[in-house]
Design a binder for these strands. Structure first.
Lengths: 174, 174
DNA sequence: CTGAGCATGTAACGAGTTACATGATTCC
DNA sequence: GGAATCATGTAACTCGTTACATGCTCAG
């Protein structure tokens, strides 16, 4: 059982879904900060079926597509995971940050370009979250909104960092 | 060539190193937000040697341990990477955030416990960064300090989020 | 009726994690 | 001189990514 397993179980608590629907549910929410490839969402449910945490119903005829639903054991497994202490360290895999770290090896224009790119990218994402919040505020549940709020605070912080850094580069060029 | 490759190349610009020394250089810096297993830092240099980006010198006698140094081609490859636009989306792999998202499936005490844990954990890390900054301020280069500063701002933002969330849970329990 | 984009799935490969094994050094 | 810890390396396995293949649906 890994993060993908619990994401599948969790998304199935909103109702039965095909892998494609799981993909969509993930894409609009936690996929924004933690990406799962569609192939993972096709593989993982099969494993969970084998473990008895998910039921599968196969469409008759056509593509014989598979719809998954969570079992009672699955709900139990999810609840147990939610009750467990969370030991893992957060991983922030940010290529821009790696590049910044090795800045001494870069040309000054490259650093500046990096900062501009990253600033734009994080600003765009933060703006997107703002819009999204306005859209879903009415129907989303409290925890989803909280998750989005952290995403937003994170993006604004990083946006601000690169902006400040750009200003600093102007005052004090490398 | 992936992130690990460039981390190895970048760390070798500070001087020749064994895999263990690479591990140490990474651990104190970018390993704080992007973890690399020690086995990766043993495998990757071998690949870079094959690609001509790194030289290997094998100790005579004893364990015949290998020390790596960056070649001119290696420096070029690193500089090219630094000059490239950075397209990848930042990935924030935070199990606590996943759990928060699925909060409707959790017991109220579990949510509260999660919030307390995450608050403590991010606060501890932020405090650690503060200390580290004070220690290295004199000798570290500008870009390393900037990287650390972003780490610090990030951790304080997340710390603050969980704190606010805890207060909110007190005012308005689930 | 045809091409574009949506939906479903699998295969192959590369990256990341965990476990194992063992040599060297230090400290009691 | 034995235990603990530091250091070096490899093997096995799992996970994640990319590419491939193809069916289905709907607009023009």
């Amino acid at each position: 059982m890994n993060a993908t397993s619990y994401v599948v179980l969790g998304m199935l608590t909103y109702g039965p879904a095909t892998s494609y629907q799981l993909k969509q549910r993930v894409a609009g929410t936690i996929g924004n900060f933690w990406a799962f490839a569609h192939s993972q969402l096709y593989d993982e449910p099969a494993r969970l079926v084998a473990a008895g945490l998910v039921n599968q119903s196969v469409e008759q005829g056509g593509r014989r597509k598979r719809t998954y639903s969570i079992t009672d054991d699955g709900r139990k497994a999810l609840a147990d995971w939610l009750a467990e202490p969370t030991l893992e360290q957060t991983e922030v895999r940010d290529t821009g940050l790696l590049k910044l770290f090795f800045g001494t090896q870069a040309a000054p224009e490259d650093i500046r370009q990096l900062a501009r790119d990253r600033y734009e990218s994080h600003r765009a994402r933060a703006d997107g979250y703002d819009l999204q919040r306005a859209e879903i505020e009415a129907r989303a549940d409290r925890w989803q909104l909280k998750t989005l709020e952290l995403g937003l605070r994170y993006e604004r912080t990083v946006e601000r960092f690169w902006k400040d850094f750009l200003d600093e580069l102007d005052r004090d060029p490398p």
